[in-house]
Nucleic acid binder design. Structure first.
Length: 515
RNA sequence: GGUCGGUUCGUCUAACGGUUAGGACUCAAGAUUUUCAUUCUUGCAAUAGGGGUUCGAUUCCCCUACCGACUACCA
């Protein structure tokens, strides 16, 4: 009898989610859905110092944009704080669960797995710098804990007194000496670490009455019946501590399975991608645009014009592949083929070019009418109003050359407004004394053409060129220059027919008057 | 420094211990086109180094190098 799969994504609200975080959420979601389980969102806000207003809302909105919808933890777009049938483990924000953690911290002390420590930050800092000066690292562990200012050798009265009079104390976990901790990671296999290399981590802080990540995380995963923990590789060094915590609580039999995902690296090859990278790297690191407290704006994939489907697809392929050569998968398809076994162990650098390619693939899959509808707001902002049918025809002509709908205007502005100026290098090449006579004939030809359609225009224009013994290249490029203003765009016949006789005539007249 | 993880084309990646080491992105060339794109074709380009084990190693083991994470009363 298998337990229902339950996974969680547990970000801390210290800023916007970056693409690595979104990928972690995505893999969790895919794993849950593939196993018919639940994906839970939990906010780990046990560090009020680093709390950033708006971050929580951002996280929820970003996941929603991606189509990664939590089964539990989010109610009507907000973190669930009251227990209900759908959200039995509420609150899902750790700051709302203070009392729970305190109880468990006390339990560990009573059972001898943890102790009170009264060392001042100044004292710890001093020991730390002393150790660093000697080229080592200060480790609060079995070797030195007896000599520190903690409850290990104190009598009950002294402890009680210190606790009641001050709020500078913490609860530390008592890491056992010289024990091999055997662990398993679903991606990396078996790992073992000697507990003597670990330190007595702080589990609870009296100053703010809050647990640290380690305690809150283990307690909540247990209480929320999490079966699989899929998180970033930066947590791998904490895994032995977490194993030991499960053991200390007596929860080793229900301990979740763990998978540590390799990190997303900076393309310039220095370390993991971080929120602070912002737009420095030439591509957004955030799914959605983010406005910082200083009013600074960091770009987002949504605002850049990425489709969420493309974004999710490309993120899925950063560190995972289906083993086939198919690269385009919908979120639903991903839930069917995803597997942790095929997650790559090494870190991946983000490739902006490939990201653009993904969006192009999704853009091409869309119906022309749909793309035209997406283009409408852009046209409106440009003050252009044309019948929808016209916009559809424009989009049909240019969509093959775009990566984003945002590219449409630049690719098609001449189909909405006459060129304001003409490409000078093309002018130099094709504009000469014969141009006026040539273009006058072309203008008359266009005006007189019946029926006025693309094939007719194309064929008859070829005939005209032959009769007059003109050079095709010269004629075509001159027409293009007059009507488009530059050496770009789809076939001349298509453009001319779409613009219509009157517009072409007026553009040619304007062109002949221009310098 | 210590602990842990990692290392296949520039990038993302594939390859029961047996493949001419495959694909995608980028780039280049050619074809198509009146232009720019698109499209099609072709090409460039990799197993970090050294030892083992094996008939045979990208694949397993060891060492070295390099990269990364962690080493907070942050997560």
């Amino acid at each position: 009898m298998h337990k229902r799969t339950r996974v969680r994504f547990a970000p801390s609200p210290t800023g916007p989610l970056h693409i690595g975080g979104v990928r972690t959420a995505l893999y969790n979601y895919l794993y849950a859905k593939q196993n018919g389980g639940d994906f839970i969102l939990r906010i780990e806000d046990t560090d009020f110092q680093r709390f950033v207003p708006g971050a929580e809302e951002y996280i929820i909105e970003a996941l929603s944009w991606c189509g990664i919808n939590p089964d539990e933890g989010v109610e009507n777009g907000k973190i669930a704080v009251l227990p209900s049938k759908k959200h039995p483990h509420a609150p899902y924000r750790q700051s709302g669960r203070k009392d729970i953690y305190r109880k468990y911290a006390e339990q560990l002390i009573e059972s001898g797995f943890a102790y009170f420590a009264f060392d001042t930050p100044q004292e710890l800092e001093r020991l730390r710098s002393e150790a660093e000066a000697k080229g080592g690292t200060f480790t609060y562990n079995y070797e030195i804990r007896e000599g520190m200012n903690n409850s290990l050798k104190m009598c009950k009265e002294d402890i009680k007194k210190l606790i009641s009079t001050g709020d500078h104390w913490v609860v530390r976990f008592k890491i056992p000496e010289n024990r091999i901790v055997y662990m398993n990671d679903m991606i990396r296999g078996d790992i073992e670490v000697n507990s003597s290399t670990l330190d007595d981590k702080v589990l609870w802080k009296a100053a703010d009455q809050l647990p640290t990540y380690h305690l809150a995380n283990i307690v909540d995963d247990h209480l929320m019946e999490i079966t699989d923990v899929i998180r970033g590789e930066e947590w791998l060094p904490s895994l032995p501590l977490h194993y030991l915590l499960y053991e200390a609580f007596g929860w080793q039999d229900s301990r979740p399975s763990f998978a540590h995902l390799s990190l997303l690296l900076k393309p310039d090859g220095k370390g993991k991608l971080s929120k602070r990278d912002g737009d420095r790297l030439g591509f957004p690191v955030f799914p959605l645009e983010w406005r910082g407290s200083q009013g600074e704006i960091s770009k987002g994939y949504r605002e850049e014009g990425y489709y969420p489907e493309a974004f999710v697809n490309l993120l899925a392929f950063l560190g995972w592949n289906p083993g086939s050569e198919k690269e385009i998968f919908s979120l639903k398809e991903l839930t069917e083929v995803f597997s942790l076994e095929r997650v790559v162990k090494s870190g991946a650098k983000f490739n902006p070019d490939k990201a653009k390619w993904y969006n192009q693939e999704y853009l091409r899959m869309k119906e022309t009418e749909e793309l035209a509808r997406e283009f409408l707001p852009v046209l409106e902002s440009r003050g252009v109003s044309k019948p929808f049918e016209y916009v559809v025809q424009v989009v049909a002509l240019i969509k093959e050359r775009a990566y984003f709908v945002n590219d449409f205007w630049e690719l098609s502005d001449y189909l909405f407004t006459a060129p304001q100026n003409y490409d000078q290098s093309v002018m130099a090449k094709f504009r000469n004394s014969e141009t006026p006579a040539l273009m006058q004939k072309i203008s008359d030809f266009i005006s007189g053409l019946e029926p006025f359609d693309v094939t007719q225009l194309h064929d008859k224009l070829q005939d005209l060129i032959k009769e007059n013994e003109w050079k095709t290249g010269v004629v075509m490029n001159t027409i293009r220059l007059a009507i488009v203003g530059a050496s770009k765009g789809p076939g001349i016949a298509e453009i001319v027919v779409l613009l219509g006789k009157e517009e072409c005539k007026s553009r040619i007249e304007k062109f002949l008057k221009a310098e």
